[in-house]
Amino acid sequence: MGKSLITFNVGETVSIRCVRCGRNFTKRLSDLGLFDGALVTILKNDSFGPIILKVLGSKIALGRGEAEKIYGETK
């Protein structure tokens, strides 16, 4: 299952293992390229506020509460 996204450091590439965000939002994230098995890179992770990810070539800002519910492991 891995660790929560917010625990990774900037620059790490993470392979998503599990998204626990509720059905509708999980769908929205899938559309953006954030689904089980996707690779994302952490671009910004301040100690508070949203994190910024590189997903499929674009930057996506994701609320901290949501990022907390997404798990992955370093590749």
Binding site: F25, L32, I60, A61, L62, G63, G65, E66
Partner: peptide, 8 residues
Amino acid sequence: ASPFVIEL
């Protein structure tokens, strides 16, 4: 809270 996600 409604979730927050936005492309930059």
